[in-house]
């Protein structure tokens, strides 16, 4: 039951884009049409789903204060949490590289569709943000971390596909010249975020 609640919450209430503005750069740059947006969305869900559990385990058994106690008494007092940024980003970068190679080898069509977006995911704030939020929230087990990863990935996917659909329609309308492109996109995202606020306070 907690899993379902966490899942729904991470999609709608704590949406990566609308509540925390994570992964905005690629969100705005790659949302011009639905097809590429879907590709990037899928890639983000996938990378989040792989990196978050790994980072959770690393945090739990290596980085946290007292996490090294499984190595013996002497290590129990070591606190490596100041290293977490560098470890997390290294994991993210390494996983993206591996995912890129695997996809290239086994699914060449998907690879050519995703193109440049795969390597770019390494610097997508949503991925690192997911790991940092996971560390802040103290999930009790790997299962929760995985569910959180899936939920927030899907939330990001949902957000980018909707925005791409709106922008496709928007290209036919007559927007004031200075507002065209970036300006109107910001305002659209703002309005979408307001509508997502209606999910706030939902309890499951």
């Amino acid at each position: 039951m907690e899993y379902i609640s966490l899942f729904v919450k991470s999609i709608f209430v704590d949406n990566m884009i609308f509540a925390y503005f994570l992964g905005m750069c690629s969100y705005l740059a790659v949302s011009k049409n639905v097809k590429t947006a879907t590709g990037l969305g899928v890639a983000v869900v996938f990378v989040l789903l792989v990196t978050l559990p790994i980072n959770y385990l690393l945090n739990e058994y290596v980085l946290k204060a007292g996490a090294l106690s499984w190595m013996g008494e002497k290590f129990a007092s070591i606190d490596l949490s100041f290293l977490s940024f560098i470890v997390f980003i290294a994991v993210v970068a390494a996983i993206t590289q591996i995912v890129e190679m695997v996809v290239e080898k086994f699914a060449p069509t998907l690879y050519s569709q995703l193109g440049i977006f795969l390597p770019l995911i390494a610097v997508n704030c949503a991925i690192l943000g997911g790991s940092l939020f996971m560390q802040e929230r103290d999930f009790v087990n790997v299962g929760e971390a995985t569910v959180y990863a899936l939920g927030s990935g899907l939330g990001w996917f949902l957000a980018i596909v909707t925005l791409a659909a709106i922008r496709e329609k928007l290209s036919y309308s007559n927007v004031p010249a200075p507002l065209r492109g970036l300006g109107i996109t910001f305002i659209t995202v703002g309005l979408m975020a307001i509508s997502f606020m209606t999910f706030m306070g939902i309890q499951l």
């Binding site: 609308f18 509540a19 925390y20 503005f21 004031p176 010249a177 200075p178 507002l179 065209r180 492109g181 970036l182 300006g183 109107i184 996109t185 910001f186 305002i187 995202v189 703002g190 309005l191 975020a193 307001i194 606020m197």
Partner: peptide, 23 residues
């Protein structure tokens, strides 16, 4: 949070009204 986005949109609007070449 949403108003931050809308404020940023307005800043872009003002900047691009002044600098026409960015439109």
């Amino acid at each position: 949070p949403p108003m931050a986005l809308i404020l940023l949109g307005i800043i872009v609007w003002i900047q691009r009204s002044i600098q026409k070449d960015l439109q």
